[in-house]
Structures are given as structure tokens and as C-alpha cells.
Nucleic acid binder design. Structure first.
Lengths: 231, 231
DNA sequence: GCCACTCCTTGATAAACATCAAGTCGAGCG
DNA sequence: CGCTCGACTTGATGTTTATCAAGGAGTGGC
């Protein structure tokens, strides 16, 4: 891999605390590759040969079940994904595809597992990352079970805003149908959900979202009382 | 804690591989307590002071969001729960209540975290446990998003059967409304879902489920192609 | 044995959501 | 500039699910 990428990758929560020697060893065995948009990186059921680190671009994790696809996560740089499959040496549960031209670091899973055994700080970071991911999923599943679509969208927008320092205006990432799939609804219903949120303090112009009245939105969306991890 | 419990607890995946001395230390600092049925053990938002290990009885993990409750997991003995909150030192995301009179081992979370730092095998086990839990949740979330209620029930029954050595007949644990909440539907719709499954190889008598035609059920429920972890 | 209670089931109705079918808008291209 | 194309929106309709209401079946208490 190019030396220029190393500082950013070394700063990732997953790799930050580990011994530098171990990190260099792991990264030396990894490949930094560029993939075109709309390329399937791997499919559910395949052996998890690599941990992925998205350095640049955009990646979608999805599962194809019961006829249709549903997106499970939108990965933005810089972050790793499919850690759970990599550390357990089990097949991928999700498939992945690039949404934009992407630079991805491929860390051989076997080598990662060995480094985890050797380096206690790395193992601790992996454990922590998995625990945070677990909590995200608990939240997402509960959301899916108890809230209806417009509420889910409202919470999602509040969370997006939160991630960007509570800005009141921001751009949606990717196409709207992607967001619809992430939220477990059809693109048609996403449109309608934005329609209902108009009456609750949210304005939409293209992919530009403006939270005009945060209190009103919170009242409608009833966000989780336990705050998120906001990584 | 009573010495009689130790062998079973020591055999748990989470504690199995760690150094015996460390394990004794951790267990010595833990409390084994008996709780009556229908008692709230903790609520979402509280600090995660303890890792719980259900030794005997039945526990429900649930979240109360947007007016109604939804059960996230039914814990059967012997297994630990809320590991993610305990290792990250973050507030509980879920609440817990006993469904039956239960014996529960309360492991102080601070002590657990210290043991994890000291004992690499324990840390590895915790990481593994979290990764498996993560994968379970990925599956559950995808299930919730792409399948409709009768299909979800079908898959759930196939999984229950799977956990009991692919027996064709088994008892449902707990009340049906609990299962309904776990599957994200109302008790009324669970009844109707069992009704539809009658035409797809499933018979129900009280809480006794019989899979009369597994192939037919699989055809209807379209189970996940990637098999579960079947712990 | 009878009553009260809870759980479960069944049916009728309403709400939420998906699907189908146009139609609008804007980007890219000849 | 006009064309095509795809993404998005909007409306009409159908399916799925929740809600409301009532009735049955089993259990425990008296």
C-alpha cells in the first residue's frame, strides 16, 4: 500500500492503540485497491478472506433475502467493515458493493486474526468496535419494530445532523432510494415520509435537508432517550 | 456464590478459556441472586454496573420505545447477557425483566473489564461472543426488513427446531404474546400466522409445535442461505 | 363445582405500507 | 437546443398489519 495512506488508517479506532510494529506488519500484508462504482466486492455466503477498510469512496452493505435487497449500512470513509465475519472466520452475512469509485484496503483476515492474538490492544479495539456495532444494531432493530416510516426518517435525520455537529442543514449521501432501503421502506414512501415531515420542522430541496424546527421534529420522531455512540 | 454453580458457569464460552485464577477472582466478586417472576432487573439508560449470567429461570430483554415495548431477546439458562454494555461501560440500551423465578449471577462490570484487560483469553472470548451477537442481530434486522410476519414465524420455528437437534416437535418457551413481540407483531397476528403455516407443514396444539413437513415449510419461509451460528 | 381471571383466538374495521401507473424534473449528450 | 434517460414524485389501488371487539378455553381460588 502507498505510504501516504498510513497516517489516516493508523488513526482509526481499530488500529490506533496497537503496537506500531504489529500495525506495520498487518498493513504490509494488505492491499490497497481501487474499485469502480457499482462493483460487487463480495457476496453473502463467501468466506471472509479480508477485512475491508474504506479509504475513499462509498460502499453499501446489503443482504438479498426473500426476493428483494435491503441495505444494512452505508459505509463512509474512513472506516472498516465486516469485522465480525473477519474475526470469527465465518462466511460473510452481507454482500458489499461500491456506490462510487472507491479505494479500499484489503486486510487478510487470517493475518488480522493472528495480529489480534498477538496484540492485546488490537484485540481490545476489535472488541470495542464490535460492541459499538452491536449497540447500533440493537437500536436499528428496535427502531424497525416500534416506529413507523416517517418517524424512522425523522430519527435518521436527527442522527445525521448529530453526526455533523448538530448542523441544521446537510446533504443526504447517495441516492434517495438508497436511504429508503436503509430505512426499510420503498422510495415512494420515503417521498411521502418527507412530505409528512414538512409539517414537523423539516424542509427538503433536492438532497439538501434543512431542520427548521428541531424541537418540533424531536417531538414527532421521539428519538431514543439513550443517546447514540456518535463515533 | 455457591460452589455448586461454578462448573456450569465455568463451562460458558465466555469464561471457558480464561485462566482459572482470574475466573475464580471474578466469580468471587460476583453475587448469585434469586429474583421473583415479573421483576424488572434494570432499565435502559441505567449505568451498566453488572454483567448478568442467567443460571436458572427465564429473562426477557426489551426496549420501550414510541409508546410500546418490544422484546429483543429471550434469555434461557445458562447464558450471559448485556455484554456489550458491560465491556463498553455505557448505559444499558435494553431493559430486562424476569419471566420466571430466576437465579442470576451478577458480575460487577468494572471487575469484568479489569479481568478482560488482564486475561487475553477472556478478552478473546468476549470479542467472539460480541461478534456472534452482532451476526445474530444482522440476521434479525434483515429478517424484519424483508420478510412478512408468517415467513418470520416460519423461520423462527425452523431455528428453534434447529437449536434442539432438528426435532420435529417442541414446546414454545414462554407465552405466545412474548413470541409475538419478539417477532415484531401483535398477538392477534401471531395467531393468524400460525393459521397460514397450517397450510405449509406446521401444526400447533397449545404451545406444542409440530413440523409435519419441513420441506414445505422451508419452501414457504425461505430461510437464510447462510446458516446460523447455532450456539 | 363455580366464578373470575388471563390468555388466546376469531372476526370486523382501520391504518400503514407496497405496488402500479403516470407524470415531473434535471443531467448528459448528440 | 432538443432528446433521452434515470431518479424522484404523486396519485390510485391492493396487500399487509394493527386495532377494536367479542367469544372460547384453561387455570386458580373459594
Amino acid at each position: 500500500m502507498r505510504i501516504g495512506e498510513k497516517p489516516e488508517i493508523a488513526r482509526l479506532p481499530l488500529f490506533r492503540e496497537m503496537a506500531e510494529k504489529q500495525r506495520d506488519l498487518v498493513l504490509a500484508g494488505s492491499y490497497l485497491q481501487v474499485f469502480p462504482p457499482q462493483l460487487t466486492l463480495f457476496e453473502a455466503g463467501q468466506d471472509a478472506d479480508f477485512l475491508h477498510v474504506l479509504v475513499d469512496g462509498l460502499v453499501e452493505l446489503f443482504v438479498q433475502g426473500a426476493g428483494r435487497d435491503t441495505t444494512m449500512r452505508i459505509v463512509e470513509p474512513i472506516s472498516s467493515y465486516i469485522l465480525a465475519a473477519a474475526v470469527t472466520d465465518m462466511p460473510y452475512l452481507m454482500s458489499a458493493r461500491t456506490l462510487a469509485s472507491s479505494r479500499i484496503l484489503l486486510v487478510p483476515a487470517a493475518q488480522l486474526r493472528e495480529a489480534i492474538r498477538e496484540d492485546s490492544a488490537l484485540m481490545h479495539a476489535a472488541m470495542h468496535e464490535l460492541a459499538l456495532g452491536y449497540r447500533d444494531l440493537v437500536r436499528a432493530l428496535a427502531d424497525m419494530k416500534v416506529r413507523q416510516s416517517a418517524e424512522r426518517l425523522g430519527n435518521c435525520l436527527l442522527e445525521y445532523s448529530n453526526r455533523r455537529g448538530n448542523r441544521d442543514q446537510f446533504e443526504l449521501i447517495g441516492e434517495k432510494r438508497l436511504l429508503a432501503s436503509l430505512l426499510g421502506m420503498t422510495p415512494e414512501n420515503l417521498s411521502r415520509a418527507f412530505g409528512t415531515l414538512k409539517n414537523h420542522g423539516v424542509a427538503l430541496d433536492g438532497s439538501q435537508v434543512t431542520i427548521e424546527n428541531r424541537e418540533r421534529l424531536r417531538l414527532f420522531a421521539r428519538p431514543d432517550p439513550v443517546p447514540g455512540d456518535s463515533r
